[in-house]
Design a protein around this nucleic acid. Sequence first.
DNA 1: GGAGTGACACGGA
DNA 2: GTCCGTGCCACTC
Length: 107
Amino acid sequence: MNDNFYDKVIEIVCKIPPGKVTTYGDIAEYLGSRKSARMVGWVLNKQKGNPKIPAHRVVNRKGLLTGKIHFEGINLMQELLENEGIEIKNDQIVHLDKVLWKPKENL
DNA sequence: GGAGTGACACGGA
DNA sequence: GTCCGTGCCACTC
């Protein structure tokens, strides 16, 4: 169902501009507590089958593509990010600070 | 109805 | 500097 938390995470992820990424902690922090970062991943896990959710733009605090393991193709997530101009090295975002996008800055 | 799980993050040893 | 344990909230079995 479209609960607040559920819908909130999806809305934020959908608003991530191309060439930018965000972290679970930032989304969780925007929702209330960054401790709820796990909930963010959980929501995406439920919506991972939804192509409208650019989950590949969501990474952990280290910029590591942790979510890629849930993608169909292990390289899919990296390719999508590289396609947007984000440089990935060893499954990790190189210039994370330059591509980092925070919901608070846009919302 | 109770217990376990999960795409994380932080503090302390 | 690295490793371990804890907290968080909602869902599923």
